[in-house]
Amino acid sequence: MQRHGQPTRESVDARLVCPTCAHVVLVGPEERCAECGGSLTEVLRAARGVPPPLPPRALTRAQRQAVWRPASSSRHALGTFLLTVGVLMVPVAVAYLRPLGVPAAILGGLGMVLRRTAWPRALRHEQRQRLRALRWGLPAAAELTRVERDFVPSVKAGSVARLAYVFTVHGELLHGDMPSPHALDVQRRPGERIWVVYLPEDPRVSALWPPGP
């Protein structure tokens, strides 16, 4: 049974065409051909796609929204609506109809509760850290280890898949995972070579690059 975060057999037995000897070979230690010892770095880099640009990186609005989003958009929108109505009722209650003060307070309070439960502080902190990694993080070669599908996207910040990966920083193997709202990510497979970015001051904070398919 595969343990959480461990590379799959497909990733361990990955084969590539060596540009030096033209044989289909296993990827040996330090990204070298198991037959001739030639470097496979460029081939592996091509398989991973274009590496991340140097920081700071400019993120598009769609890329930011893919990360910065409430756990429940509908509940957050309802809370925002109720809070707005409550706030707008306050000056009317103060100037003209004081009995409106009670329902204004109730609506405003309910709106605040809905907004906070729809977007918890811990989730916002996690998303801020991930955005920092996407903008300022250093690039690292990584590998997908697990792809899980979320069947109720509205419960998990619109996520339709959760991607787990491993990468190495200064010889230390690190694990990461990241939710994705992109349907195409459901089709990805363990063993796929990818890029991640991580914060140099805390490599445990990382994110997949690019933040969209």
Rank of each mutant, 00 (worst) to 15 (best):
residue 208 L to E: 03
residue 59 L to T: 02
residue 17 V to L: 15
residue 174 L to M: 11
residue 61 R to H: 10
residue 91 P to C: 09
residue 182 H to Y: 13
residue 184 L to A: 15
residue 191 G to N: 09
residue 90 V to D: 01
residue 2 Q to V: 08
residue 112 M to G: 12
residue 14 A to H: 14
residue 85 V to R: 00
residue 138 L to K: 09
residue 76 H to Y: 13
residue 120 P to T: 08
residue 190 P to L: 05
residue 101 G to T: 12
residue 5 G to I: 00
residue 93 A to V: 12
residue 84 T to K: 00
residue 123 L to P: 01
residue 159 S to T: 09
residue 124 R to I: 06
residue 207 A to S: 10
residue 168 T to A: 03
residue 153 P to A: 09
residue 98 R to K: 11
residue 81 F to R: 10
residue 95 A to Q: 10
residue 111 G to T: 15
residue 35 E to C: 11
residue 106 I to M: 14
residue 190 P to R: 03
residue 84 T to A: 08
residue 56 P to C: 08
residue 154 S to N: 11
residue 77 A to Q: 12
residue 134 L to N: 01
residue 197 V to W: 03
residue 181 P to R: 05
residue 52 P to H: 08
residue 165 Y to K: 09
residue 127 Q to G: 00
residue 150 D to Y: 09
residue 125 H to M: 04
residue 1 M to G: 15
residue 209 W to V: 11
residue 176 G to Q: 06
residue 193 R to Q: 14
residue 37 G to Y: 05
residue 112 M to Y: 13
residue 53 P to W: 07
residue 154 S to D: 10
residue 72 S to R: 14
residue 143 E to H: 03
residue 163 L to M: 10
residue 64 R to D: 01
residue 191 G to E: 10
residue 113 V to L: 14
residue 137 G to A: 05
residue 201 E to H: 15
residue 28 G to H: 07
residue 114 L to H: 06
residue 24 V to W: 13
residue 55 P to F: 07
residue 152 V to R: 14
residue 124 R to W: 02
residue 128 R to E: 04
residue 210 P to H: 04
residue 171 G to M: 05
residue 128 R to S: 08
residue 103 P to C: 05
residue 42 E to Y: 04
residue 61 R to S: 11
residue 160 V to Y: 09
residue 97 L to T: 14
residue 65 Q to L: 11
residue 123 L to F: 05
residue 124 R to N: 04
residue 70 P to H: 06
residue 1 M to Y: 14
residue 63 Q to W: 06
residue 90 V to A: 08
residue 78 L to T: 10
residue 17 V to G: 15
residue 141 A to H: 09
residue 171 G to I: 03
residue 209 W to A: 06
residue 16 L to N: 02
residue 99 P to K: 14
residue 190 P to G: 08
residue 5 G to C: 01
residue 67 V to I: 15
residue 16 L to K: 02
residue 32 R to F: 06
residue 12 V to H: 09
residue 100 L to N: 06
residue 178 M to K: 04
residue 93 A to W: 03
residue 14 A to P: 08
residue 212 G to V: 06
residue 162 R to K: 11
residue 40 L to H: 02
residue 170 H to G: 08
residue 111 G to F: 02
residue 108 G to W: 04
residue 77 A to V: 07
residue 196 V to A: 00
